[in-house]
Amino acid sequence: MTRNGPVALFFHALVVIFMLAPLVIVCLVAFTPENTLSLPTRGFSLRWFEAVFHHPDFVQSFWNSLWLAVLSATLAVALAVPASLAITRYEFPGRGFLNALFLSPLIIPHLVLGVAMLRLFAVVGAAGSFGWLVAAHMVIVTPYVMRLLIAAISGFDRSVEQAAFSLGASEATVFRRVTLPMILPGVTGGWLIAFINSFDELTMSIFITSPSTVTLPVRMYMYATESIDPMMAAVSALIIGITAVAVLLLDRVYGLDRILVGQQ
C-alpha cells in the first residue's frame, strides 16, 4: 500500500529523472550517426562503438582495467577472509587498531591515497609498475570486502560450527565444509563490489598509472579533457552496460540493498 500523496510522487518522479538523465543521455548519444555530440535524431548507428573497438588506447585500457579489477578483487578477498575471521573471532592486542586500519581507506580521500602512493612508488623505484598498481587497488577495495565479510561472519551462529565439530570434523574440514559455504554470499558479494570499485576507480589511479598501465577511467578522463566526440559516449554506454550486468549479478548473489544499505 503506497501511502504517498500526489505531491510526494511528483517529487519522487523528479528525483528519479534527475538520477537517470545523465546516464540515459549518454546511452542515446552513443548511437548517434553524427560526428558531433548530438542526440540520434536521424537514425541509429553503431559506428562509434565500432570506433571504440578499433581505438587501440581504449582497447588496451579496457584490458588493463579488467585485469586490474579481477586481480585486486581476488587478492583482496584472499587477504580479507582470514583478516575478518581474526577480527571477529579473536580477542587480541591491536585488534581495534587493525580493524580501524583495514577500514581506513574508506575515509581517506582517494586523492590523498593517490599522491601518497605516487611518493612511495617514487621512493622505492616502482613507478608505473602494474604489480604495485594492483597492490594499491587492493588497499582501496579491501574495506568493502571486509565490511561485508565481518557482517557475514558476525551474523553467523557459532553453534553450527560446534555441531560440525562435535560430529567429528577436523578444524580444516569445519572451515571448508561449513564456515566457507556459509559466508560464501559475503565472499562473492565482496568480490563483485571490489571488482566494480576497482574497475571504476579514477582519482587514485590517475596519479600512479603509466602510459602502459593506464586504466579505462583514467583514459576516459584524459580523453574528455582534450577532445569531445561521440566515441566518449560509446565507451560510457559500454561501461554503463557492464555495470548493469555486475549490478544484476550482485543483486542475485547477495542483494544489492544489503550491500549498499548494510545489514538489516
Binding site: D157, S159, V160, Q162, A163, R177, V178, P181, M182
Partner: peptide, 12 residues
C-alpha cells in the same frame, strides 16, 4: 551427539 538450542543445522 549434541542438539543445540538453535538446532545449528547446516543451512547449505
Amino acid at each position: 551427539g549434541i542438539v543445540f538450542q538453535s538446532y545449528a543445522l547446516f543451512p547449505h
